[in-house]
């Protein structure tokens, strides 16, 4: 679905944000994009949305060359959720806000209304269709922004730190919605600083550092490279830190989440003692 061939980007001021790397993302994958601030994550997302054009190399999305198609055309294929919903929301009701994108794509009348209603339902905002977006909480505003992207029905979603500035419950809500969208077939590329969230939701991770692609692989493989993660200021999820030594000794199976670790520990304890001593009936 996404293919980057030696993609590089240099800002007009000479800053080399992306130093030229390649990767591929297949349809239906859920990929986390991680790295320190300034590593080039947002730049890569903007290239995918066609908002910036690669200064070298080629970036293909759904068979289209992002340098050759108009941004509005690309918006049918790539839904780009910005970090701050306040950069987008300006209409008096959620309904109008959700209709903004599809209307720009030329939809009218019933088709338009259906798109808006469908998008609201997908993010659980149906009761808020007539509300003023600016009077909603930050987490709800972020969901409005996400729905306004979904209303254009793009198969690919690129999300720039969708949980910033929200409390844990709101963050979980939006990540669960994204997970559902992924299960319905969307390809997801999501920037996140929260390794616990990444461990819970993503299948694969790309690690950027200084404009280079440092790591690319399944979560377990990426989290195993603690040296590289440490260099970008990241720690693997706590489950991995806790289980590390036992895994190395072959006492615990590989895990990435706390739930998996819990199950593994209970398994070991059961093996050690009588299960009835460990688990209440």
């Amino acid at each position: 679905m996404i293919r980057a061939e030696a993609v590089a980007f240099t800002y007009p001021n000479g800053f080399r944000a992306l130093q030229g790397f390649s990767f591929e993302i297949k349809a239906g994958e859920f990929v986390a994009l991680i790295g320190a601030n300034g590593a080039g994550k947002t730049t890569l997302l903007k290239l995918l949305g066609g908002l910036l054009k690669p200064t070298a190399g080629r970036l293909m999305v759904g068979g289209l060359d992002t340098s050759r198609v108009r941004v509005a055309e690309l918006a049918r294929r790539v839904g780009f959720l910005f970090q701050n919903p306040d950069h987008q929301l300006f209409l008096p009701t959620v309904r109008e806000e959700l209709a903004f994108g599809p209307r720009n794509l030329g939809l009218k009348g019933r088709a338009l209304a259906e798109r808006a209603a469908g998008a609201a339902a997908a993010v659980g905002l149906t009761p808020y269709l007539e509300a003023n977006p600016r009077q909603l909480s930050k987490g709800q505003r972020q969901r409005v922004a996400l729905a306004s992207i979904l209303a254009m029905e793009p198969p690919v979603l690129v999300l720039d730190e969708p949980t910033t500035g929200q409390d844990y419950r709101e963050a979980l809500e939006i990540m669960t919605i994204i997970q559902q969208l992924h299960r319905q077939g969307h390809t997801v590329l999501c920037v996140s600083h929260d390794m616990e969230m990444v461990a819970c939701f993503a299948e694969r991770a790309l690690v950027l550092g200084g404009g280079k692609l440092l790591l690319d692989g399944p979560l377990a493989a990426v989290f195993a490279r603690e040296d590289i993660l440490a260099a970008t200021g990241l720690l693997p999820p706590q489950a991995i830190q806790l289980a590390r030594a036992y895994q190395a000794a072959g006492l615990l199976p590989p895990v990435t989440t706390i739930e998996e670790l819990y199950a593994a520990i209970i398994g070991v304890l059961r093996g050690k003692k009588d299960a009835r001593q460990v688990l209440p009936a």
Binding site: D167, Y168, R169, A171, L172, E196, P237, Q238, A239, L242, I258, E259, L261, Y262, I265, I266, L269, V278, L279, P280
Partner: peptide, 19 residues
């Protein structure tokens, strides 16, 4: 809806299981 440290979650689960 507090976000609690994952390590704390693990031991809360273990405690609930009586382990």
């Amino acid at each position: 809806g507090l976000e609690i440290p994952p390590v704390t979650t693990l031991f809360r689960l273990l405690r609930r299981a009586g382990a």
